[in-house]
């Protein structure tokens, strides 16, 4: 024991003299521990307190967040597909904005997780936590069954745009389609930059995240400017980020193409009045049918429907 102490003291002193500092394991910042007084020396029953280690990641928090995300997705699906209530959808949007956006500071974010997942798939030495897998997969799964309910009810980035949309104008369909292809480019660019070798890796989705600066009430200037621009534009153009840039929106439009259920304008009750078409700020209703790939499940169309009351609670089975 004494011998061990001596040896470690020698090692410590060597370090103290500036030796081999560079050759250490990064976690290992060995200091001359043995010159520090021990509990016995300090006396009077003194016990060295526990080092204030950074508390480990709180797993319950992540489980809670994942459960809330899943719950919110199911709730959104129920509200939009079953209850068909714009009011409830709106309320859910506000709650999700408050929690996932402002309270969790925009970091329950499937959009950014694309990059992490891409890196984990491409780089054998990299992995993502279970939590991120869940965050990435849950909305896609939801879209496979219920359409883009994540966009409509849960996504904080969508929600903040949803709230500022005051005077929606219809974007000409051709322009809408052209701009809509931008998100694919963005997705490809983000994945390509993320899977670069570690040194050159760049997470552009996070770097140019338009709204996270607002959620945190602080952020780089460029972020705030981009966010401000999107919000200004969003006063008139419904959810410009979601429709034209969001790379996760691109993925969701892919899986929602196959979705089991989706927002539907009930064919046997429709009036061909076109009010729903006008009410849709996202250009997602074509020929009186909601286009699943671009429908953001906001439930505005139901609200505008003159037979809304009868629509509500209509058997979705009959609808599809």
């Amino acid at each position: 024991m004494r011998r061990a102490i001596h040896v470690s003291l020698v090692v410590a002193l060597l370090l103290a003299f500036g030796l081999s500092a560079a050759a250490q394991d990064p976690a290992d910042y060995q200091r001359p521990v043995d010159v520090a007084p021990t509990d016995e020396v300090i006396g009077e029953g003194y016990v060295t307190p526990e080092v204030q280690r950074p508390r480990s990641l709180a797993p319950w928090r992540q489980v809670l967040d994942m459960a809330l995300l899943g719950g919110a997705l199911l709730l959104a699906a129920w509200i939009v597909l079953k209850r068909r209530s714009r009011r409830l959808a709106f309320a859910l949007t506000v709650v999700c904005l408050a929690y996932f956006g402002f309270y969790r500071e925009g970091c329950i974010c499937p959009i950014g997780s694309i990059q992490n997942v891409a890196v984990a798939l491409a780089d054998p030495n990299h992995a993502v936590p279970y939590f991120v897998i869940g965050i990435f997969m849950l909305p896609l799964l939801a879209a496979l069954f219920f359409g883009r309910v994540f966009c409509g009810g849960v996504c904080a980035l969508g929600a903040i745009q949803e709230l500022v949309l005051l005077k929606p104008i219809q974007v000409p369909p051709r322009l809408d389609r052209a701009l809509g292809s931008l998100k694919w480019l963005y997705l490809v660019a983000a994945v390509a930059l993320a899977v670069l070798p570690a040194a050159g890796r760049d997470f552009i989705i996070c770097r140019f995240d338009p709204f996270v600066g607002f959620f945190r009430f602080t952020g780089p200037v460029h972020m705030m400017l981009i966010g401000g621009a999107f919000l200004l534009l969003g006063l008139f153009v419904g959810r410009p980020y979601c429709r034209y840039l969001c790379p996760y929106g691109a993925l969701l439009s892919l899986t929602s193409r196959l979705s089991w259920r989706g927002v539907s304008i009930t064919p046997d009750r429709e009036l061909d009045c076109g009010l729903c078409n006008k009410a849709c700020p996202y250009g997602a209703i074509e020929e009186m049918r909601a286009v699943r790939t671009s429908c953001l499940a906001c439930a505005r169309c139901y609200e505008s429907c003159p037979v809304h009351l009868s629509c509500r609670g209509a058997d979705a089975e009959a609808a599809s």
Binding site: P26, A27, S56, A120, A127, V128, P129, Y130
Partner: peptide, 18 residues
Amino acid sequence: YLTVKAHDTYAWEIDPNK
């Protein structure tokens, strides 16, 4: 595939030697 690789605890750490 991701789950097999997944870890629980990766996090930002500061290397005190750097």
